[in-house]
């Protein structure tokens, strides 16, 4: 029983990490209807820049963090200016392909600028087992994952407040609801897109730092996007709570399946189990857990 709880807990923690990546996807999809495949590479690029600035200049990490946020905002502006503004009104699949192109570009750029070797990311985040949990409940919990969970919670709360209470947040929600209506009341779509891509970039930076602290900053970081996709379809492309809950479900499902189901089929099912879980779920509810109901008209 204890082992089961431990499994579920570690699944929840891993799920939080997935949610962090999925969040960035949802933000962009909601506001512009673009399925941004480059989100995973965003994480890699942000983390690389973050570590790179610290290495090259020796500044403390908060300074580097602020600088990287600046870089991500500049990147968002450049993407809107040079890529998206030329592709307005194109088919979704064309936009999707453009973001894959973007992913290649950023991957090459990140490697060129900061080198492609694995970089350790050490900004004093705690690691190892939590003694308190180990002593009181006899359960092994990774400290770093607790930190990640706390950070994710703070981030989501921050985003929720931003979306609900601020002027820009309201404009963002208006755009997500109906592009044309938003345009007609004087909301600038281009500004909104820059803001959304910036926010997604910052979320990617946080996710990149968390993943980087866990496994070092390296190319494989860009592959976590693939981990976030089943989370997305499970939660629904347009729902922020969906990304969180979906992440938790996938995280737990994956860990439990790997331990209790894996041995029967030869193990290493983590790669595809999440997809199968999401697929089975979609057959029952095609718009995902919290997605908007799909209404089709002729």
């Amino acid at each position: 029983m204890l082992f089961f709880i431990e499994t579920v807990l570690s699944g929840l923690m891993a799920g939080v990490m997935y949610s962090l990546v999925a969040l960035g996807f949802v933000l962009i999809f909601k506001a512009s209807g673009i399925f941004n495949f480059a989100q995973g590479v965003f994480c890699l690029f942000a983390a690389l820049t973050f570590v790179g600035i610290m290495e090259k200049t020796g500044v403390p990490w908060p300074v580097s963090f602020v600088l990287t946020v600046g870089v991500m905002i500049a990147l968002a502006w450049a993407i809107e200016r040079f890529l998206l503004s030329h592709l307005v009104n194109q088919e979704p699949i064309i936009l999707f392909m453009a973001t894959i192109g973007l992913a290649y570009f950023l991957e090459g750029l990140g490697d060129l600028m900061w080198g492609s070797d694995v970089k350790p990311l050490d900004i004093g985040l705690p690691s190892g087992a939590s003694d308190w949990m180990l002593d009181t409940f006899d359960i092994y919990v990774e400290k770093l994952e607790v930190v990640a969970a706390v950070v994710a919670a703070a981030l989501v709360t921050g985003l929720a407040v931003f979306f609900q209470k601020t002027r820009i947040g309201r404009a963002l929600r208006a755009v997500a609801d109906d592009h044309q209506a938003a345009l007609s009341v004087g909301i600038s779509l281009r500004t909104i897109w820059v803001i959304v891509w910036s926010v997604a970039g910052i979320v990617a930076l946080v996710a990149g730092i968390m993943w980087g602290a866990k496994s070092g900053v390296q190319f494989s970081l860009s592959l976590i996007a693939l981990k976030a996709l089943p989370v997305l379809i499970l939660g629904g492309f347009t729902s922020i709570p969906g990304a969180i809950v979906g992440g938790l479900i996938i995280g737990v499902g994956e860990k439990v399946a790997e331990i209790y189901l894996g041995p029967f089929v030869g193990g290493a099912i983590e790669n595809w189990f999440a997809y199968m879980l999401a697929l089975a779920f979609l057959l029952v509810r095609p718009q995902g857990l919290f997605g908007e109901r799909i209404i089709e008209r002729v």
């Binding site: 399925f35 999707f96 492309f237 595809w272 997809y275 697929l279 979609l282």
Partner: peptide, 27 residues
């Protein structure tokens, strides 16, 4: 699944085929 799922949901669902088949032939 394409009878029930459409668009990008389907695209992601087909990734299940990709990962599952490669795992199968490897395992």
């Amino acid at each position: 699944p394409s009878l029930r799922i459409k668009g990008f949901y389907l695209a992601v669902a087909t990734l299940a085929a990709q990962f599952f088949l490669v795992w199968l032939f490897n395992k």
